[in-house]
Design a protein around this nucleic acid. Sequence first.
DNA 1: GTCTATTACGTTGGGCGTAATAATG
DNA 2: CATTATTACGCCCAACGTAATAGAC
Lengths: 299, 299
Amino acid sequence: MSTRFDRLALLETFVRIAERQSLSGAARDLGTSQPSVSRQLAALENRLGVVLIRRTTHDVTLTPDGLELLADARRMLGEWEAIKDRHRKDDALMGTIRVIAPVALGQSLFIKSATHFMKDHPDVTIDWWLRDDAIRFAEEGCDCWLKIGSVPDDTLIVRELARVERLVVGTTECLAQHAGIDLEAMPWLTLGPFEGNRIELFDESGTPKTFAVTPKMASDNIFAVYEAAKQGVGIAIMPRWFVASDLEDGTLIDVAPNLRAARLPVNLALASGTRRPARVEQFCEAVQDYCDVHLRVDA
Amino acid sequence: MSTRFDRLALLETFVRIAERQSLSGAARDLGTSQPSVSRQLAALENRLGVVLIRRTTHDVTLTPDGLELLADARRMLGEWEAIKDRHRKDDALMGTIRVIAPVALGQSLFIKSATHFMKDHPDVTIDWWLRDDAIRFAEEGCDCWLKIGSVPDDTLIVRELARVERLVVGTTECLAQHAGIDLEAMPWLTLGPFEGNRIELFDESGTPKTFAVTPKMASDNIFAVYEAAKQGVGIAIMPRWFVASDLEDGTLIDVAPNLRAARLPVNLALASGTRRPARVEQFCEAVQDYCDVHLRVDA
DNA sequence: GTCTATTACGTTGGGCGTAATAATG
DNA sequence: CATTATTACGCCCAACGTAATAGAC
């Protein structure tokens, strides 16, 4: 058996193959030849005594064993990175950070944090994937998963970034048109993932009140809802950070200052190794800091 | 820079050097030559850009960076082991498990669990070190630390094995001699690490009662205390498991059946990686099982 | 036919051991 | 002076790339 291979290099190659779903693709990425990749994969399988990847000429699929190894391999490589990073004299970060974030937050709020981070660290690349559905963290190969709501994977380390305040907003005109009408009868603009036809709001004392509404518009996109609200079509529940400037300049107003929707937790999930590359650690801190400023829990 | 070394092999060599405090010693252990070890260490230091070990011809000391790496290296090597183990078809365990245990428990109760384990797994070697004082886990290079009382290191994973019941015991003769005398006035045999001259016992309802005693004998060794108690010199607080057979055959009796000393927690501490070699994982389970039987919490 | 993975094979360079050197107590 | 770490040097094999082969869509 070949004992001369760098075991970590073997893992790197394996991960690359899994990501590219192709030996030759991995070879191109790694700047080496197809046979070399093939040999390394074979060597890894020999060492572990297990078939990791079932390969035909036009298809490559991971075996269950391979899938298991993928997560472990990524973690180990991350830890080696972390070991290297720790001893870097210059604190210049480098490498790639893979982030998965919810679509709405990822294209507005968080992206600003990410761009700041990239400006601060010119040699850092960020893969920025926006997805709202749950993911299989281990299979994605991402370093950091930003998520609204709870994280359905207890193998991950979860840090709560914020609990965003949400309030009912509308334009002055819209309110004037429906003056005297109670909240239930107002034209509602609802956001699919979080609200149905029953809306629950809490008063200052925290007691819930349920409103049965018939939405004027329902959407799964917060920007659409936002636009409709600004046009005066109806009232909508919005995160404070999202409408902060509109509230300031009066474009939108706080329709029910004594009522609030449940705070939505925003979480950050990480793979559960003990050491992470410095770039990942620092990125998480940057996001946390950004949230502390822009999603501050002021109430 | 040499990129052909197996990075994990470099870590293995490094750890071995750190343990043996000698390059040539490590070379002997690893079945290779002195120069090879020297080269590997140099290669590792080059890769990390850091001096890990300050070496003179007759002395070898780890730098702070080296000390840091030592823990990480051990963890990574353990994880590689775990990856290999997981795919073993035959469930025969092999390799070495390093355990640190408290002296008293380690030479009596736990050693039985360890011997059982070795019988069940012929290819497993156990390094069995008995120490009562706190250790710097990361520097010891042990896989598993059994400890009485809390574990003063929050970087470790801690599992509580048991909370041992402790009761006051003495011989019938001893009690007869001091009949009618209250507990405080009895000749006490106290165990240094856990008791001073003030002894706290709890009644059935859990309310504490403090006794100021003047020990007839104080020792730091539980076997000495046990022997003295069996000779009828005085009464002593003993773990139930320690005196169970004596209580059964009447050699010792439960002096104060309605009073108990505080239960002592027995913990098992592990390094905080996510994956451990199968042998370590199974050993821990075996110890846990053994405790569940022989240190059962029956009250 | 085209893309793929595997096998074949000669090359090469990096790590090895042996031997010599230097350094420390 | 004994023991140790480092440098020097030649050897050698293992991993490489190129090329050829085989297989799948």
